[in-house]
Design a protein around this nucleic acid. Sequence first.
DNA 1: CAACTATATGTCAGAACTGACATGGGGTCA
DNA 2: TGACCCCATGTCAGTTCTGACATATAGTTG
Lengths: 110, 110
Amino acid sequence: MDNVKRAKLKASGWTIGSTQDFLGLSAEEAALVELRLALSRSLRTWRTRRGLSQVELAKRLKSSQSRIAKMEAGDPSVSVDLLVRSLIAMGATPRDIAQAIVQPRRALAV
Amino acid sequence: MDNVKRAKLKASGWTIGSTQDFLGLSAEEAALVELRLALSRSLRTWRTRRGLSQVELAKRLKSSQSRIAKMEAGDPSVSVDLLVRSLIAMGATPRDIAQAIVQPRRALAV
DNA sequence: CAACTATATGTCAGAACTGACATGGGGTCA
DNA sequence: TGACCCCATGTCAGTTCTGACATATAGTTG
């Protein structure tokens, strides 16, 4: 939904910690984006910790390398559903997922 | 995916606290179901606390009463995505959602 | 009783997502 | 250099989800 916002968002590529409203996102949109990004980051963390390549993870998930890449990139074409399923497939529990969501994003050092 | 399991699951209608494996779900499937149910329950809680009817919430979400009902019923046709978006639309933050996920399900009193 | 409100459930066309494929770029190694 | 990896990005046909609608059940009120 709302491809305009998505495109804008994507185009900008975050930098600073807070995802919010430097792009005119409403608080709700921002919350959703934040949540998605938290899951994206978490996915990469889990995968690399496991020493898996995107190809290997894709095989395990019966998905494809390109989709894994999109997930980790926070691409708007991936659903929260898929992110969650992927994390679970790597052994994450609902508790782990909850933690990933609240994990504060460290601001980039300058 | 896996409509067989879904159907079985739906047919049974939970009773006890733990969603798990009295139906032969793998640990991963169970984790996912558990998470979905946690969000479903949370949705109803948030809605009723706000004193909203399903119709009112549907209007706000640009969805429909029937879909809200399905969400709250844990219907397999609703995605985690939609659940999350709905919660956020009612003002829930990522933190609130995380909490909903970890909230232990109280076993039904006998 | 009818009328009204709130919720549940089934169906389906159209919208959104997904896996697969193609391709490009950056690294490493011999 | 060529031969591998690993990852990013674009595209698209097939699958899944969604809103809308119809309809049903239950509770309330007059």
